[in-house]
Nucleic acid binder design. Sequence first.
RNA 1: CCUACUAUGAAUAAGCGU
Length: 311
Amino acid sequence: NSLWNAILQAYASNRHKAEAEKIYYEMPLWNVFSWNYMVMLYCNSSEFDKAQGFVSTMPVKDIVTWTALLAGHARAGHVKLAKTIFDTMPEHNVVSWNAMINVYGTNGDLKNAESLFNSVMREKDIVSHTSMIQAFAQNNDLHGAVRTFERMPYRDIVSWTTMITTYAQYGDVDSAKDMFNSMPQRNLVTWTAMIQAYCSNGFLEEAKITMDKLPLWSITLGNVLLQGYAENGYVELAKQVFDRMEEKDIVTWTSMVSAHAQNLDLVEAEKIFYEMPEWSQIAWNALLAAYARTGKLERVRRTFEMVPEKE
RNA sequence: CCUACUAUGAAUAAGCGU
């Protein structure tokens, strides 16, 4: 049974809906784990009606079911629904509280995040503290973020990396670098965060030097460098990075379209756009914005017609 | 006491708003 569930999980978390449903109906026995995987599947593919309907047919629901629904709605930006689920679920634990801190934090409600954290939660873990750091960081309270980091009982690589990003967002690259240097271990995400910290603050040389020290490579890293060059006005260098990347993802392509578009180089932007293996909503938007800014209203209209899924 | 198949936190893309 756990073997079936493991397969179901693999399909569900990779959003292979058809395969997941097939496994679900083929497996000999369901339990709350299997049901929860299905809830996650529907949430991850933004089919909330289906998720909701599925939940209402489940003979057993547990706190994981509710938290998965809560987090799913939160990810999709359904803040009120997320809060309603939180308020009506039969019990809370550290995971559901953490999820709710995130909802509050990413939606500008620092007050409620803090009161959950300070007054309601009787148990807190590393995730609680890290989520609270983020809540402060996203709501214009660098000191709150630093204070939380300094006071937390244990830190892990995620909390350290969060601080790198936080300092970088506030333009304090030196402190970001201090974090990077003082943390006990680093992984690829850490390095990428540090390089992004340099790039977004205009320290391209430092970014390049740091990257050369790193024996690893990833598409995200290439994307960071590409965007770093582009947003600092070096579209040519961005294009060089782009051309050298053997593997590209949708972000790579979109970043390159957007780099040209923001440079108002419509010819190059379109060229990359038509070479893209699939079109992202964001790439469409980048093109539209460039047409609009150059006064090509007719092209805006025609392109707008072509956008498959309009937001 | 041991055991575990689920939910929450970190890095990269457009516009809008602040």
